[in-house]
Write a protein that binds this DNA or RNA. Sequence first.
DNA 1: GTAACCGGTTACTCACAGGTTAGTTGCAAC
DNA 2: GTTGCAACTAACCTGTGAGTAACCGGTTAC
Lengths: 112, 112
Amino acid sequence: MSATKTCTDYLRPLRDAMDVLGGKWKIPVIMLLSVRERRFKEIQRELGVAAKVLSKELKELESHELVKRTVFDTVPLAVEYSLTDYGRTLEKVIGEIRDWGVHHRERILERV
Amino acid sequence: MSATKTCTDYLRPLRDAMDVLGGKWKIPVIMLLSVRERRFKEIQRELGVAAKVLSKELKELESHELVKRTVFDTVPLAVEYSLTDYGRTLEKVIGEIRDWGVHHRERILERV
DNA sequence: GTAACCGGTTACTCACAGGTTAGTTGCAAC
DNA sequence: GTTGCAACTAACCTGTGAGTAACCGGTTAC
């Protein structure tokens, strides 16, 4: 942290990232979609999240161009959510978080 | 994601990590402390966080052994917060988040 | 003697994230 | 003809994370 850069400057990218990833379900959703694309109900069932909340989270992810929403004109209509290429750039970040989580869990369990 | 592992199993480490890092100020605090150790008021001023909230966050970080609280028997007494070695294992994760934030900010600005 | 700094704590307030329940449209199965 | 699913939306409710303000004991500076 140089003298010319304030702490605020330094923390801003962190805030930016947290804004995009904020909310209880965004990271889990991205993780699910990084494995393969999914339909609305599928995500809902897997995560146990309320439809309203999931809908909101998906919209936010879409607005940041991390997730793509595709409507299939089938009967009954299907909607599929998938990660965009830009969304895929988050896989590394989320992978790191998850790796740390694995490490952390091991650490806690071995201290019993 | 194998057939024998449920999605819940897969997401658990992510949840573990998010539990530890949850709260508006934990990541910023760790980031500050990763540069160098700081005193209470110092952190408070730099982040603009309420004393009550900072106090709580620091206690939680301490309980997870990420941060060490050292009291100096000086006059007036000083309290210094620093990252533990375990806390340092988070630097990589937070670095990744920040890098992504930098990248994201650039992406947004170039689209104007 | 009084104002200010450090490292907090306590009490009060409040916005809002997230949850619950019900409803909608459009089709298909029983 | 009504029950059910997909993919939501609308209305309402609630817990709590976080902020504000006041205060504490100890200390030093003015």
